[in-house]
């Protein structure tokens, strides 16, 4: 929106959200899930994020303010970070509505619900499937040796990316308004999802190999070297490592993926590993 129209808006007594309002919406959006509940999930959190705008646009005690509060207490749920651009769009629509544009409740909720599904579809693999596991694995790898850099790196990288996106999202959604929908059609979201999935799967593949530890010390053969008199011991693990290092973890990963797809609670699988580990250790099958 250009300065001229904004100035004209002020002249005719039009309501306009200030940069400060948008800043506070950004701050509050970091608390989106505070009251997450099984009935309406992030609904109250969304209304909580919108509060600075509702306060600015609709006067205290007015029927419009009550309506706005009700409007944003409707069911809402998406990947938390992805709520930022949706909040921005809602801000733009509320501003238009407060200035008398014919935007009805159904339109505002329709756009919220319409965006939350596709954005969660993109957001979950990008934020939970790629960004966090990659940063966390990076941090955990360093932390295993007791180095403080591990946790720090994870915290700073993740939050820089997340806060940056949230900040950009609120302002972008507000500027673009409903046009956000057409931006989403250009294949950009699909490219991002697919690219993130490739990176995520690649890193997971390397983690399955690098950050697992299975040792099967069962002795297969004991060959005496005639010259030195020493025994060369070949264990199951030696043979497996010659085939392909990390073969057992790879198989275990596939078994887990299969069990998880059967909707088995991951904690049961973990407990299963405990039982296998204790029995294997007791029988000297694992070391």
């Amino acid at each position: 929106m250009s300065n001229e129209t904004a100035a004209a808006g002020v002249k005719t007594g039009q309501k306009k959200l200030t940069k400060r309002d948008l800043f506070w919406v950004f701050v509050r959006s970091n608390f989106l899930q505070g009251s997450w509940n099984f009935e309406r999930m992030q609904a109250l959190g969304f209304a909580f994020s919108m509060t600075p705008a509702i306060r600015r646009l609709y006067p205290e005690g007015s029927e419009e303010r009550k309506q706005a509060m009700k409007r944003h207490n409707e069911f809402f749920n998406t990947t938390p970070a992805m709520a930022a651009p949706i909040t921005g769009v809602a801000l733009a629509l509320e501003e238009q509505k407060a200035n008398g544009a014919p935007v009805d409740d159904a339109a505002i909720n329709g756009i919220k619900v319409g965006l939350m599904g596709p954005l969660a579809g993109v957001g979950d693999p990008i934020w939970w499937g790629t960004a966090r596991p990659v940063f966390a694995a990076l941090g955990a790898g360093i932390a295993m040796s007791g180095n403080i850099l591990g946790p720090l790196l994870f915290f700073v990288l993740w939050n820089a990316l997340r806060l940056g996106f949230r900040w950009w999202g609120v302002f972008y959604g507000y500027k673009k308004g409903v046009d956000v929908v057409s931006d989403m059609g250009g294949g950009l979201l699909q490219k991002l999802t697919e690219g993130a999935s490739i990176l995520g799967l690649f890193v997971m593949g390397s983690l399955v190999n690098k950050w697992t530890k299975v040792d099967i010390p069962v002795v297969l053969s004991r060959v005496k070297n005639p010259e030195t008199g020493k025994y060369t011991i070949t264990t199951v693990q030696n043979v497996l490592d010659q085939l392909m290092p990390g073969l057992v973890p790879l198989l275990l990963t596939f078994i887990c993926m299969w069990l998880l797809r059967k909707k088995i609670n991951p904690l049961w699988i973990i407990l299963g590993f405990f039982v296998v580990g204790i029995l294997g250790y007791w029988a000297h099958f694992f070391k």
Partner: peptide
């Protein structure tokens, strides 16, 4: 001791969860 052994394998559950989410 057994739990230490299991610890080396349990990590694959987490990997499997992430892989399943993006698996194509």
């Amino acid at each position: 001791g057994g739990l230490n052994v299991a610890g080396g394998m349990i990590v694959v559950v987490g990997y499997a969860m992430v892989i399943n989410m993006m698996r194509a």
